[in-house]
Design a binder for these strands. Structure first.
Lengths: 190, 190
DNA sequence: ATGTAGACCAAAATACGATATTAGTCGAAA
DNA sequence: TTTCGACTAATATCGTATTTTGGTCTACAT
């Protein structure tokens, strides 16, 4: 890691701490600078805005989640099991980093488009992974009714189901048995 | 229907019209009164606040949706098909009355608790219906892995899936094929 | 050149008092 | 019992003064 990336990392780490303490809107660039032990203007040498810091921060976290999920499903052969493990892993990892996202939930007003963009980026990656698993499942003849033509839409629906579950019963409630039921429901049906 | 209920209905109908025109926050009691052809103070003879009018209005709509859904699944024997038809019916009916809800979406700020209470009421009813269907399915031995003890949690999970889908891919997108895929996914699995 | 920081500016947020709307009450009348 | 106009207290809106904050610029250090 070169010097530039190292300082960026210091700033991002500092930002992560103050964001999770004060939220996105309430933290000022001055706060981040103070936490990082730098002058405010130095921050602008590395990032062009507060949004960019937040965006980089979030994308880092999401990439880590996706990386872990991909690693987790790597050795698994059965597409059904692949999907199960994928959902379980992303759920667990999102829960770990949920502290940042939970406070954002209450701040979706002016920064709505920013959050939407970050979410969209994650959605695209997630949908691609799910589509890959479904394609494999079709090849292995492991699914009941899924046709070739429906795969893309099915992947989208599954992603929406996961997303809905994450918001509604995961970030608030934390019943691991329910998560288990949800995974089995999607993969196996009733 | 007695006189009291008739006048209440006139007020609610008028309110429905102006709400769907101006939204919840922007419509004044004067607006509703004028639309109903009554004096403002007359409204307070029947309802104690604007919130109460809105609440009654929404509950009426939700009850109609639930009534239609119950009627639709009445003659069906198979619990799996019952659930399929239930989801399809509520989706269709919610879409019909979505005009009122879609404008509310942008107004969830101060009236958040009010909306939450109405939603909660619907959730409870919906979960009860789903639980009934699942119980029947267990009795008929129609489900793969669902155990007695999981039924309540499974009903909750299904309700959350439905709710998530409604918000994410239904109110915005309107791909009926996706809805179809979602229904089959939940009921049959992949 | 590459980094860093203090001074600086313009734009946005906040605070606040004056004004205007609006929710909700009350007594009278039909 | 039901309806309404007049009234009031609370809330929202608006204009303006003040402060905060995002972002730039320049000078200085390595």
């Amino acid at each position: 890691m070169n010097k530039d990336e190292a300082v960026k990392s210091v700033i991002k780490d500092a930002a992560k701490r103050v964001f999770s303490k004060w939220g996105l809107n309430k933290t000022t660039m001055e706060d981040i600078a103070h936490e990082a032990g730098k002058a405010k203007s130095t921050l602008y040498y590395y990032f062009k805005s507060k949004e960019e810091i937040f965006e980089n921060l979030s994308i880092d976290e999401l990439n880590i989640i996706l990386f872990k999920a991909k690693a987790a499903i790597k050795g698994i052969n059965s597409p059904k099991d692949k999907l199960k493990v994928y959902i379980a892993t992303t759920f667990t990892e999102i829960k770990k980093t949920a502290n940042i996202y939970s406070l954002i939930k209450g701040e979706i007003k002016g920064n709505k488009t920013l959050i939407d963009n970050i979410r969209k980026r994650f959605d695209i990656s997630e949908e691609a992974i799910i589509l890959e698993i479904l394609t494999l499942g079709l090849k292995y003849n492991e699914f009941n009714f899924l046709k070739d033509i429906e795969l893309k839409k099915a992947a989208n629906v599954i992603m929406e189901i996961i997303r809905g579950l994450e918001i509604n019963l995961f970030l608030e409630n934390e019943d691991s048995e329910k998560v288990d039921i949800a995974i089995r429901l999607v993969v196996e049906g009733l």
